[in-house]
Structure formats: structure tokens, C-alpha cells
């Protein structure tokens, strides 16, 4: 749910990075944080366990520039990927304007990708959203790892609707900003169309 403030002339949107455990959601945010000018970003918050697994969420506020005198601000969140944190994932999806699904390209993680994608659909549906109507993009991460599926294969399984998708290596930053730009653009385009939040 975007928030438009006529007084401060700001448009605020919420983007959630979703995907199976250890697929690189937090790494995406860390790269964005490291490569963004200090004046365009706020503090990055990570609510993580002692072993640096996301416990609740990561949060990064980002300013992307102005459109017709309105400052556009994006709040980026990640969900905890581990299966048993489902209750937390549902909470973080509330009020979402756009989703980045981060898939793990390793063949061994294919089932985890599919399970997480189904979980995303279910959790969105519980809140009256449909993934098919919600702006979303897909990132095939870990392209530098051995034992990975081809992008075509991943696309066939995870992207039947043909939404924008990107290969990535989040640890080096490859594909990270391309993914972010694509989702930001989709979210703003959806708002322009007078939609916003895929349930309407």
C-alpha cells in the first residue's frame, strides 16, 4: 500500500524480497546499501539470529529521485526464508506494493524455489492479493555457483507469466540494481494506472 503525502510531496512504496532460505535476499539489500549514496539511503536494519539468518526482516529505506515534484521513496524489506518462519513472512507482506522473488539457481534448490513461490501465492491470497496482479519480478541468483539450472529451465518452472526476470550474482552485485529498477518501475507504472496492491 503506497503512501502519498501531499504535504512533504512524497510517494512511499513497499517492496518485499521473497524466496527460499539462503537464496540471497539479504545479500541483495546489502549490496544496494553499500552502493547507494549516503544521502539517498537510511540505515539498514537486520533483525537476524546469532548465525546471521534473517529472523524477522531486513529493512532499507531508499530515495530514488523525483517525479513531477514528488520524491519517490522505497522501503525495501526481506522476509525470513526458512520454512518455519511462515507467520513472520505473512506479516511482512502486509501492504506490499511489489515483490522481488529471489530464486536460487542451484539444481539442488529447485524444490525449495517452487515451494517458496507457492508459499508466496498462498500468503498473498490470504490477504486478498493475487500474485498475477501484483507487480513482481524474478531474480535467478547465484549464477556463479556450480551445479546450476539454466535460465531457460528456471524461467519455465518459476516464471510462466513471463514477468521481467534477471540472472544475478548478489555477492558481486551483478543483476542486483537491474532487478531493483525493474520492480520500482513496475510499481510506479501500476500506481499510475490507478491500481496499487494487486487485490483490487
Amino acid at each position: 500500500m503506497s503512501f502519498i503525502n501531499y504535504l512533504s510531496r512524497e510517494i512511499n512504496c513497499k517492496i518485499v524480497y521473497y524466496g527460499p532460505g539462503l537464496c540471497g535476499k539479504t545479500t541483495n539489500l546489502q549490496h544496494i546499501y553499500n552502493k547507494t549514496n549516503p544521502e539517498a539511503k537510511g540505515k539498514m536494519i537486520s533483525l537476524a539470529t546469532e548465525t546471521e539468518r534473517t529472523l524477522f526482516f531486513d529493512f532499507l529505506p531508499l530515495a530514488l529521485g523525483e517525479i513531477r515534484g514528488f520524491k519517490t521513496r522505497f522501503h525495501l524489506y526481506t522476509v525470513p526464508g526458512q520454512v518455519f518462519y511462515d507467520a513472520s513472512r505473512k506479516l511482512i507482506l502486509k501492504g506490499v506494493d511489489g515483490v522481488v522473488f529471489v530464486a536460487d539457481s542451484q539444481i539442488a534448490r529447485m524444490e525449495a524455489n517452487i515451494e517458496s513461490m507457492e508459499n508466496l501465492r498462498t500468503n498473498l491470497a490470504e490477504q486478498g492479493y493475487s500474485l498475477d496482479k501484483l507487480p513482481h519480478v524474478i531474480q535467478y541468483n547465484k549464477r556463479d555457483m556450480p551445479g546450476i539450472a539454466s535460465v531457460e529451465e528456471l524461467r519455465q518452472i518459476l516464471n510462466p507469466n513471463g514477468v521481467p526476470d534477471f540472472g544475478a550474482v548478489a555477492t558481486t552485485g551483478e543483476g542486483v540494481f537491474e532487478t531493483l529498477k525493474a520492480i520500482a518501475k513496475l510499481v510506479l507504472t501500476e500506481l499510475k494506472r490507478g491500481g496499487g496492491a494487486g487485490g483490487r
Binding site: 500500500m1 503506497s2 502519498i4 503525502n5 504535504l7 490477504q127 496499487g196 496492491a197
Partner: peptide, 14 residues
């Protein structure tokens, strides 16, 4: 409308 957009106008903000 499950999740209406939040908009802030000058009158209410004040």
C-alpha cells in the same frame, strides 16, 4: 477495497 491507499492532505495533516 481490502487495503486502501494512504494519502495525506494538508488539512488533515495540520
Amino acid at each position: 477495497m481490502a487495503n486502501p491507499q494512504m494519502v495525506m492532505y494538508e488539512e488533515e495533516f495540520n
